[in-house]
Write a protein that binds this DNA or RNA. Structure first.
Length: 343
DNA sequence: TACGATGATTGATC
DNA sequence: GATCAATCATCGTA
């Protein structure tokens, strides 16, 4: 009896079971209703313990003999059952993880941005959204669009290639561990359920690595988006004709350089820009003119002359038609925009 | 590459 | 909500 207790405590180390699990010999008997159980089990345990003192070849031979022992499957089954009732039942509660909300968010975002999921549709939709949000002209939009799409495709390609690498590594490692555990399950109480659980643990570890990849991909997409959405970075100077139209209006309305909403719309149409761009332009122009009238004097004279020539032309045409002509703003007003902003 | 010009943004004011 | 004033970020040029 004392020997058996010693053997049992030795087996604890081999099987991973606690002393308590192994203490109840009656349990073994109860489970399997063996004819001469204690004697057989004692033999097996004795042999197991003796393995450690033997050479590798001897141990291999003995291992083989043990594997072929008629009682081995029964003992193995009992050990697996006891182990599952203890170790696995404790872990089991923790292992049932709900889907990670963070990884779900990342997945949704990558899908929406067209990085994961079907290649063409989503990516171009996202690019179109960016182009629309940027509010550029159709041509500019298409340039930005293709640029954005190219960079997004680059991110997408890197993401998928990394993902593939992770999946391959995960699969290789899982197979390796499974083979190892299957091999070990010949001598250790490792049940298929436990192998399955181990596979789950490996997958969770790899999915946490994948989450990091998804996170950095999302960051890259965000940076890309902000780069294309930030209007300041998209600033283009207005073309010469648009600037002339705006300047003409400004200098011919110098006494009151505040275009009405209708005038802004008209100017926006003429210059092929938006009403808010017209407002920005006049806001900037008023301030910059006010700050440095001297600097703008030459420009003011130039447009004054231009307006005068236009007016003269209209006037001569009008006199030919024998009717008085008036410039639409009552002629070019002398610069009277005082530095304090009052007229 | 430095620097001025210029379109856009932001916070304050009316 | 429109405008002012300051500032930012980019463009164009010497």
């Amino acid at each position: 009896m004392e020997d058996q207790a010693r053997l049992m405590s030795g087996l604890v180390g081999l099987s991973g079971l606690s002393q308590g699990d192994m203490g109840d010999h009656d349990a073994l008997r109860k489970h399997h209703n063996l004819g001469q159980p204690q004697q057989d089990i004692g033999d097996i345990l004795q042999q197991i313990m003796a393995i450690t003192d033997e050479s590798l070849d001897e141990a291999q031979a003995r291992k083989h003999a043990l594997n072929c022992h008629r009682m081995k499957p029964a003992l193995f089954s009992v050990l697996c059952e006891i182990k599952e009732k203890t170790v696995l039942s404790i872990r089991g509660i923790q292992d049932e993880d709900p889907p990670d909300p963070q990884i779900m968010r990342l997945d949704n975002m990558l899908l929406a941005e067209g990085v994961s999921g079907p290649e063409k549709g989503a990516a171009s939709a996202a690019a179109a959204a960016v182009a629309a949000a940027a509010g550029g002209s159709p041509n500019e939009g298409s340039i930005e669009h293709s640029d954005y799409r190219a960079k997004l495709a680059q991110i997408r390609q890197i993401f998928h290639s990394e993902l593939e690498k992770y999946e391959q590594a995960c699969s290789e490692f899982t197979n390796h561990v499974m083979n190892l555990l299957r091999e070990q399950s010949r001598t250790r109480p490792i049940s298929p359920k436990e192998i399955e659980r181990m596979v789950g643990i490996i997958h969770r570890k790899f999915s946490s690595i994948q989450m990091q990849l998804k996170q950095s991909t999302c960051e890259a997409v965000m940076i890309l988006r902000s780069r294309f959405l930030d209007a300041r970075r998209k600033r283009r100077n207005f073309n010469k004709q648009a600037t002339e139209v705006l300047n003409e209006y400004f200098y011919s309305h110098l006494a009151n350089p505040y275009p009405s909403e209708e005038a802004k719309e008209e100017l926006a149409k003429k210059c092929a820009i938006t009403v808010s761009q017209v407002s920005n332009w006049f806001g900037n122009k008023r301030i910059r003119y006010k700050k440095n009238i001297g600097k703008f004097q030459e420009e003011a004279n130039l447009y004054a002359m231009k307006t005068a020539v236009d007016a003269a032309s209209v006037s001569s045409q009008a006199s030919q038609a024998n009717s008085p002509g008036t410039p639409n703003s009552g002629g070019y007003p002398a610069p009277c925009y005082t530095p304090d902003g009052r007229l």
